[in-house]
Measured scan of single mutants.
Amino acid sequence: QEELVKAFKALLKEEKFSSQGEIVAALQEQGFDNINQSKVSRMLTKFGAVRTRNAKMEMVYCLPAELGV
């Protein structure tokens, strides 16, 4: 569980995922086979993730800066 949270936060820091499906796929690539869209959705809510525009003006998920991840 701890490893999943770390990987999840690291992915969001990249600010390149525009959908929950993309986050699920990226986590599965890292070996988290039991991850699915509903789990990702709950984690996004739990950590207060928001959708914002990145440098390329794409809408992407990211974590609020005050979490200091």
Rank of each mutant, 00 (worst) to 15 (best):
Q1A: 13
Q1F: 13
Q1P: 10
Q1I: 11
E2F: 12
E2L: 11
E2I: 12
E2S: 12
E2V: 13
E3V: 09
E3T: 11
E3K: 13
E3M: 12
E3Q: 12
L4N: 00
L4I: 07
L4P: 01
L4G: 01
L4E: 03
V5W: 09
V5P: 03
V5D: 14
V5H: 14
V5K: 08
K6E: 13
K6C: 15
K6G: 06
K6A: 13
K6Q: 11
K6T: 10
A7V: 09
A7W: 05
A7F: 06
A7L: 07
A7Q: 06
F8S: 01
F8T: 03
F8L: 09
F8K: 00
F8Q: 00
F8R: 01
F8D: 00
F8C: 15
K9E: 08
K9G: 04
K9N: 05
K9A: 08
K9H: 11
L11H: 02
L11C: 04
L11Y: 03
L11V: 05
L12E: 00
L12I: 06
L12S: 00
L12K: 00
L12D: 00
L12N: 00
L12C: 04
K13E: 08
K13V: 09
K13M: 14
E14F: 06
E14K: 07
E14S: 13
E14N: 06
E14I: 06
E15N: 07
E15L: 09
E15F: 06
E15Y: 06
K16D: 03
K16N: 05
K16A: 08
F17C: 15
F17M: 11
F17L: 06
F17Q: 02
F17V: 04
F17Y: 15
F17H: 07
S18V: 11
S18F: 07
S18D: 03
S19E: 08
S19F: 08
S19N: 09
S19I: 05
S19L: 06
S19D: 08
Q20R: 12
Q20H: 09
Q20M: 14
Q20N: 07
G21M: 15
G21R: 14
G21Q: 14
G21C: 05
G21N: 13
G21H: 12
G21D: 13
G21L: 14
E22L: 06
E22I: 03
E22P: 03
E22W: 03
E22R: 05
E22H: 06
E22D: 11
I23H: 00
I23G: 01
I23W: 01
I23T: 01
V24S: 05
V24G: 02
V24E: 04
V24Q: 05
V24N: 02
A25Y: 08
A25M: 11
A25E: 10
A25V: 11
A25W: 09
A25L: 11
A26G: 03
A26V: 07
A26E: 07
A26F: 11
A26K: 08
A26P: 00
A26H: 10
L27V: 01
L27T: 00
L27A: 00
L27F: 01
L27N: 00
L27E: 00
Q28T: 09
Q28D: 03
Q28S: 08
Q28I: 13
Q28Y: 08
E29I: 10
E29F: 08
E29W: 07
E29M: 11
E29S: 12
E29Y: 09
Q30G: 06
G31N: 03
G31R: 03
G31Q: 02
G31H: 03
G31C: 02
G31V: 01
F32L: 02
F32Y: 08
F32K: 01
F32A: 00
D33W: 11
D33Y: 12
D33H: 13
D33S: 14
D33K: 13
D33Q: 13
N34W: 14
N34M: 10
N34I: 05
I35S: 01
I35Q: 01
I35T: 03
I35D: 01
I35W: 02
I35V: 12
N36W: 04
N36V: 05
N36I: 04
N36Y: 05
Q37M: 12
Q37N: 09
Q37I: 13
Q37A: 12
S38H: 13
S38P: 09
K39G: 09
K39C: 10
K39E: 14
K39M: 15
V40H: 00
V40G: 00
V40D: 00
V40I: 08
V40K: 00
V40P: 00
V40W: 01
V40R: 00
V40N: 00
S41L: 08
S41F: 07
S41Y: 08
S41T: 08
S41C: 04
R42F: 13
R42P: 01
R42C: 10
R42Q: 15
M43F: 05
M43P: 00
M43T: 00
M43S: 00
M43K: 00
L44W: 01
L44P: 00
L44F: 03
L44M: 05
T45V: 13
T45S: 10
T45P: 03
T45C: 07
T45R: 14
K46D: 15
K46T: 10
F47P: 01
F47V: 12
F47Q: 04
G48E: 05
G48K: 08
G48I: 02
A49R: 02
A49I: 05
A49D: 02
A49L: 02
A49W: 03
V50D: 04
V50I: 12
V50M: 08
V50G: 08
R51I: 13
R51W: 08
R51H: 08
R51N: 04
R51S: 05
T52G: 11
T52F: 07
T52C: 15
T52M: 15
T52Q: 14
T52H: 13
T52Y: 09
R53S: 07
R53Y: 11
R53F: 09
R53W: 07
R53V: 14
R53L: 15
R53D: 04
N54A: 02
N54F: 02
N54H: 03
A55Q: 09
A55C: 04
A55R: 06
A55V: 08
K56C: 03
K56W: 07
K56Y: 10
K56L: 09
K56H: 11
M57C: 04
M57F: 10
M57G: 15
M57W: 08
E58T: 05
E58D: 07
E58H: 05
E58V: 09
M59Q: 06
M59V: 09
M59Y: 14
M59S: 06
M59N: 05
M59W: 15
M59L: 15
M59E: 10
M59G: 04
V60G: 02
V60C: 03
V60I: 07
V60M: 03
V60L: 03
V60H: 03
Y61R: 02
C62Y: 08
C62N: 05
C62T: 15
C62P: 01
C62D: 03
C62H: 07
C62M: 13
L63H: 02
L63E: 03
L63I: 09
L63S: 03
P64G: 05
P64D: 04
P64R: 05
A65P: 15
A65L: 11
A65T: 11
A65N: 11
A65Y: 10
A65G: 12
E66T: 07
E66S: 09
E66P: 08
E66Y: 09
E66V: 06
L67Y: 05
L67V: 14
L67S: 14
G68Y: 03
G68C: 06
V69Y: 04
V69G: 13
V69S: 12
V69M: 10
V69A: 12
V69P: 14
